[in-house]
Design a protein around this nucleic acid. Structure first.
Length: 570
RNA sequence: CGGGGUGUGGCGCAGUCCGGUAGCGCAGGGCGUUUGGGACGCCAAGGUCGCAGGUUCGAAUCCUGCCACCCCGACCA
């Protein structure tokens, strides 16, 4: 591609709407343009990247035995009533009406449609298993779209749905898709990790998320370097401490703590470490009465885990200040279990503590030397905190580390949640009707582009992994419009590399060198060749990899072969 | 949906407090000089100051209402 025949539009300054680096660089590089909140045009340059991502996904899905189809984006409400999701999905489902006032939605996911296809087509066990997938535009009316295409409302997803005669076969395909996803993200050139995940609203049993590792990621994930354990922090079990609770050594003492509300203030005021304090959080119980949750001061309450407790109202909500005052006689910041009549649930780690500091249920007062059993009744015990670095791994094989990730893929064992609702039956060998087992497997295609940039950039711009770079190599001629020798050498190398099937971008704009260098670096082309009169006199051209510190010279007559080996090797 | 913030030319901003009819940088156009790290000079062009009402002789500026967008919290690929 010659730049004169392409469309490149870069900015020196990032639009102020962009907060994260990938969003800024995608706007500056002209990969995307915003149309409205969470909705973006993919400009020609960005589209090249997107297509490369899609093609890798498509190739590996095909290799994994999945079969591509394309389902409609617009779906009739009747199907969603059948699965009961028309009511359940909430405002995230974009609902539309046609001219006859019939209800439709713009599909946020395709379990209903694919199930309808399969129940019409598949009657016999002989037609199973099946795995249908598509790469298609979805719409989810997100509460808060942000970070550009990282969390858009309209986005492209690869979604796959598999159908099986029994659970064993679903498990086989689930592992197959796990391997397929690992191959996909490896080929994309991304540092990633598969982690055990919460199944969330989609339902089903087993589930794994695939995360691109990046400090700016929205998800906290944990892994064990000594084993293959890895999980989303939402899910990762905080195992009970091995140590038994020491006997009390201090008397319970009420202390005046004026203005102290947070654990940090408490620690500073009393000069105690956070591990010797207990945090009290009040949430609404299943009976709408306040329930007191206790976690160690340096730990964090995990709302997903709390959401699995039968004693609590779903979804979990913090109690209002009014109901807290009524139940405790004090405001948040001075709360504790002593004297509280309702349900108390303590994290496992709290149960191993003695002589700790906790709110006294009187404003501006705390207790020191508090002890379970002696100063208040034994509470119910549950795992309700986030794991922290150094916690023992739930598999017993080491200690946990934490890092951050961007969720780019998610695989689920749906089991029969949808196949029962949508009557996905088939006849088995003995002629009996059975319900299919289902799996579903998603990849956020547009999000991958943002995640790749988040993981691969420097102060000059994007450093795309080779597999998804918009171009493999950029030729930057110096004086293309002045020097016949430069033009001839650049045109020839361009033609030769193109003939080798390499994606070459020839920057034949009449720009100053600095402007061309800056643009090629901004848009993340992995290899750059500079051709100028200065080098040609010596029979040399200059080569620089996007990640190289310094350029180096190559003989002109070997240019094609050496560049080809660098493009294909690196 | 709550909380915070911003809307001025394609992009980044100043001007708003203290009303007097819009300015800077970048990008884009023309001419000239330049050409190995985002050049320089001159010239020209480009704005319903988010929208609607109001106050006023006069509103980007003050008042009211609305809209859009961004950021912080519950969602998810």
């Amino acid at each position: 591609m010659r730049v004169s025949q392409f469309f490149i539009s870069t900015l020196k300054e990032a639009p102020s709407e962009a907060e994260v680096i990938s969003h800024q660089l995608m706007l500056r590089g002209g990969l995307i343009k915003r149309l409205t909140s969470g909705v973006y045009t993919w400009m020609p340059l960005g589209l090249r990247v997107l297509r490369k991502v899609e093609n890798i996904i498509r190739e590996e899905m095909n290799r994994g035995g999945a079969i591509e189809l394309l389902m409609p984006a617009v779906q009739p409400a009747e199907l969603w009533h059948e699965s009961t999701r028309w009511e359940q999905y909430g405002p995230e489902l974009l609902r539309i009406k046609d001219r006859h006032q019939r209800d439709f939605c713009f599909g946020p996911t395709h379990e209903e449609v694919v199930s309808d296809v399969v129940r019409r087509e598949v009657k016999s066990y002989r037609q199973l298993p099946l795995n249908f997938y598509q790469i298609q535009t979805k719409f989810r009316d997100e509460i808060r779209p942000r970070f550009g295409v990282m969390r858009g409302r309209e986005f492209i997803m690869k979604d796959a749905y598999s159908f099986h005669v029994n659970y064993d076969d679903l498990l086989r395909e689930y592992r197959n898709m796990h391997d397929t996803y690992s191959r996909i993200f490896t080929r994309l050139g991304l540092k990633f990790r598969a982690v055990a995940a919460d199944t969330g609203s989609i339902g089903g049993t087993g589930s794994h998320e695939f995360h691109v590792l990046a400090d700016s990621g929205e998800d906290a994930i944990t892994y064990c370097p000594q084993s293959d354990y890895a999980a989303n922090v939402e899910l990762a079990e905080a195992v009970a401490p091995a140590a038994t609770r020491p006997a009390p050594t201090l008397p319970l003492k009420k202390v005046h703590t004026p203005g102290v509300k947070t654990i940090a203030e408490l620690c500073a005021f009393l000069k105690v470490p956070a591990q010797h304090t207990v945090k009290a959080v009040v949430v609404d119980g299943a009976d709408s009465k306040p329930v007191l949750l206790l976690v160690r001061g340096d730990h964090e309450l995990n709302m997903i885990k709390a959401g699995k407790l039968a004693q609590l109202k779903q979804p979990v909500t913090f109690s209002s200040v009014e109901s807290i005052r009524a139940a405790f006689g004090a405001d948040p910041g001075s709360l504790g279990p002593a004297g509280f009549k309702g349900t108390v649930i303590a994290d496992r780690a709290v149960m191993a503590m003695a002589d700790f500091v906790i709110g006294a249920n009187a404003n501006d007062h705390h207790y020191t030397g508090a002890n379970i059993g002696r100063d208040f009744a034994e509470p119910a015990v549950a795992d309700i905190r986030n794991v922290v670095t150094g916690d023992p791994s739930p598999d017993g094989k080491g200690t946990l580390e934490l890092c951050r990730g961007i969720e780019v893929g998610h695989i689920f064992q749906l089991r029969t949640k949808y196949s029962e609702a949508l009557k996905l039956g088939f006849l088995d060998e003995s002629g009996k009707t059975q319900i299919m087992e289902m799996g579903c497997y998603g990849i956020g295609v547009t999000r991958i582009v943002a995640a790749a940039i988040e993981q691969n950039h420097d102060e000059r711009g994007i450093m795309f992994p080779r597999a998804i770079a918009p171009f493999d190599v950029a030729i930057v001629p110096i004086g293309y419009h002045k020097s016949a020798a430069v033009k001839a050498a650049a045109d020839q190398l361009y033609a030769e590399l193109q003939a080798e099937g390499i994606d070459v971008l020839l920057d034949n704009r009449d720009e100053r060198p600095g402007a061309m260098f800056a643009d090629m670096e901004l848009i993340g082309v992995p290899h750059r060749v500079v051709i100028g009169d200065r080098g040609l006199k010596e029979g040399q051209i200059e080569y620089k990899g996007r990640r190289d510190a310094e350029p180096r010279n190559l003989p002109l007559n070997e240019a094609k072969t050496s560049i080809k080996s660098m493009v294909c090797g690196g």
